[in-house]
């Protein structure tokens, strides 16, 4: 009789633990999805900001056509990208072209003194930062979530309900990280 009670108690405990782990996994998965949607929000915001900014600078830097067109092209490519890999590559390129654009702006002091432009620039710069931070936070979440999926005992629960490993969001910036090659 005693043994029966012990077994029953252990079974109840196991079920409770199972439920607890399952719930925490769901919560984690939702958090990663939330973090992902944060990235999405900021990427959209960037798409909206870029045309405004280009419109504001057109009068000042008409002969920097190449730089402006570069940004426009990168933006439309990023917007039309489909797969995750393609998307992250295109977003990386867009970030790159925006940074180049800001470098060119340095040569236009009267533009830098324009209130409207300054407000837009602050917005775009902040949006770039927000994208980076959202990505950072998303990757942190994914790391934690993936760890949970692999570690005992949560991996048992995850196996039963087929939780999938999350995918890291990596901007394809290997090209920028490589040291510049010097040719003689």
């Amino acid at each position: 009789m005693m043994i029966l009670w012990i077994v029953l108690g252990a079974a109840v405990l196991a079920v409770l633990m199972f439920i607890g782990i399952f719930n925490s996994l769901v919560a984690l998965r939702n958090q990663t999805q939330n973090a992902w949607s944060q990235i999405d929000v900021q990427l959209k915001r960037r798409y909206d900001l870029i045309p405004n900014l280009l419109e504001a600078v057109k009068g000042y830097m008409g002969h920097e056509r190449a730089t402006l067109e570069n940004v426009t092209r990168a933006r439309s490519q990023a917007m039309s990208a489909q797969s995750v890999g393609e998307k992250s590559r295109a977003e990386g390129a867009l970030t790159d072209s925006v940074n180049k654009f800001f470098l060119v702006v340095e040569n236009y002091p009267e533009l830098k003194a324009n209130q409207n432009f300054m407000a837009l620039q602050e917005e775009l710069r902040s949006t770039e930062n927000k994208i980076a931070f959202a990505r950072q936070s998303y990757n942190d979440q994914i790391l934690f979530y993936n760890n949970k999926l692999q570690m005992f005992p949560s991996n048992v629960v995850a196996g039963c309900f087929q939780f999938k490993q999350g995918e890291y969001f990596q901007m394809d910036d290997a090209a920028h990280r490589a040291a510049p090659q010097v040719k003689f």
Binding site: Q31, N34, A35, Q38, Q42, S126, N129, K130, F133, A134, Q136, S137, D140, Q141
Partner: peptide
Amino acid sequence: VVEEMKIASN
């Protein structure tokens, strides 16, 4: 800046 840090700290 506050919003950036809000995003970063989730």
